[in-house]
Design a binder for these strands. Structure first.
Length: 465
DNA sequence: TGAAATGTTGGGGCG
DNA sequence: ACGCCCCAACATTTC
């Protein structure tokens, strides 16, 4: 009988289009699917991600058990747990899907060595991207640092391969040990349980991902270009957390979207291109996660105001559009992309607090927190990324609010303290006549935008080389 | 995947 | 009739 194979799940919590699972199945060997709560991760999961992970593992575990292979849950250091497990099972191979972020890939190298010492092979399969990070390069063989030529070059490559089918059955092995109960990981918040809004908004897991995908392609994709920038509408796909946890493969998404008639150079698939760009950039420039890509920004005179930082996190900046976004984030673990740009601009330019603070806050509170997209987005907003918004492009939160939330539906929804204010003043409540402001609990603006903007431009001029 | 400052143009009021 | 001013509307430049 062939020796069993361990299938190690990470950010690939699905059965569909799963290269590692398919490879293991093709071998005909009995499988042991494993998930490890890794205690040596270079960056621990954020709180919202932990909540999501709990439910996603619950979903995956059920899907696997129904197909014949219960998921073994472990906690500790993969480089120690996997060799021990392989020894006990008599397994000669561990198969997993590649993690593309360099920090996590470093862990995998340690795992590979530890397994090799036991005579066990670690097979790491290409995964998680439409195009492999090594494959998109300029004619000179260099990585792209600007999105448009990057995406053009990617689209000139052979189209991503067809997704692998979802297996009907997964012939499993009786685990040699009981493993942990999911509850033992305590991934969900207690005292207080702040996850009510998350639970009301999301259905983590592969089934939820497919539901979202189907609904988007049937109802949302056609109006995406028109509605994507209006945060009050349900105009985006909301697939980001499913992608972040690998509940939906980008390849599956790509082909489903192509079949629905979407063009890769524009609209929704172009946004998927930005995801691709961030992941490729992080792969080539690992320090992008923590340090500005434009060196001049190492000298930027960031402020450190704890009171303003607290007000920002609480969504009490006094700018309704900004606060609505921050409160949507806090409540639902997600923020509309248009508002992310405005919120990030406000933190970095109006408050001049370090983009890394914002990045860390998003990491903790977003259900779609992603090791590449998150720093990529913040570096873009801060103007210190390679293909970033110029630093002098400062969003005016009032004008942006009027343009993209003209009737104030978004602000009213997330800032109920402003719900009764007439639309004319909704994005600038301090301009409302005193009579309209009676009983208003909403805070005054943390900073005056016009002045903050000038100060930011001056600070920027000071570091320019 | 901006916004503000500055420049230009052209119509209309007016002496 | 003419020059002048004002100022919106639009375009360009600058940050």
């Amino acid at each position: 009988m062939t020796s069993p194979v361990i299938v190690w799940f990470r950010r690939d919590l699905r059965l569909d289009d799963n290269p590692a699972l398919s490879r293991a199945l093709a071998s005909g060997a009995p499988l042991l699917p494993v998930y490890i709560w890794e205690e040596d991760l270079p960056r621990p999961w954020g709180a919202a991600s932990r909540w999501w992970l709990h439910h996603s593992l619950e979903s995956l575990s059920g899907d696997l058990a129904r197909r014949g292979a219960p998921l073994l849950l472990l906690r500790g250091v993969a480089a120690r747990l996997l060799p021990a497990l392989a020894r006990r099972l008599g397994a000669a191979r561990v198969i997993c899907n590649r993690r593309n972020d360099p920090a996590a890939a470093g862990l995998d190298r340690a795992v590979r060595e530890a397994l090799a010492a036991e005579g066990v092979a670690l097979e790491v399969l290409a995964h998680g991207l439409l195009f492999e990070p090594e494959s998109v390069k300029s004619r000179a063989g260099q990585p792209f640092q600007v999105f448009t030529p990057f995406w053009r070059a990617a689209l000139a490559l052979p189209e991503p391969g067809a997704p692998l089918p979802m297996p009907e059955r997964v012939p499993g092995l009786v685990p040699p040990e009981p493993g942990l109960d999911l509850a033992a990981l305590a991934l969900r918040p207690t005292a207080p349980d702040w996850a009510g809004g998350l639970a009301a908004t999301w259905q983590p897991g592969e089934a939820g991902a497919w539901r979202r995908l189907t609904a988007f392609l049937a109802e949302g994709a056609a109006s995406y270009p028109r509605r994507r920038d209006l945060p009050a509408e349900d105009g985006t796909s909301r697939l980001s957390p499913h992608l972040a946890f690998g509940e939906l493969s980008p390849r599956r998404l790509w082909h489903a979207a192509r079949a629905a008639g979407l063009h890769p150079a524009e609209g929704f698939l172009r946004e998927l291109g930005w995801r691709e760009f961030c992941h490729h950039m992080l792969f080539r420039f690992p320090e992008m996660a923590t340090r500005p890509q434009r060196a001049a920004f190492e000298r930027f005179p960031w402020r450190q105001d704890p009171a303003q930082w607290r007000a920002f996190r609480q969504g009490r900046t006094g700018y309704p559009f900004v606060d609505a976004g921050l409160r949507q984030l806090w409540h639902s673990g997600w923020m509309h992309n248009r508002v992310r740009m405005i919120v990030a601009s406000f933190l970095v330019k109006d408050l001049r607090l370090p983009w890394q603070w914002g990045e860390a806050w998003f990491w903790d509170t977003l259900v779609d927190a992603d090791p590449a997209n998150n720093p990529g987005g913040w570096q873009w907003a801060a103007g210190c990324g390679m293909d970033a918004a110029p630093y002098f492009r400062v969003f005016n939160p009032v004008l942006q609010g009027r343009r993209f939330d003209p009737d104030g539906a978004y602000v009213r929804r997330w800032c109920p303290d402003l719900a009764d204010l007439p639309a004319a003043y909704l994005h600038a409540p301090w301009q409302a006549p005193p009579l309209e402001r009676i009983g208003l609990a909403y805070p005054p603006p943390l900073v005056e935008h016009e002045r903050a903007r000038k100060e930011a431009l001056a600070a920027f001029a000071a570091i320019k080389d």
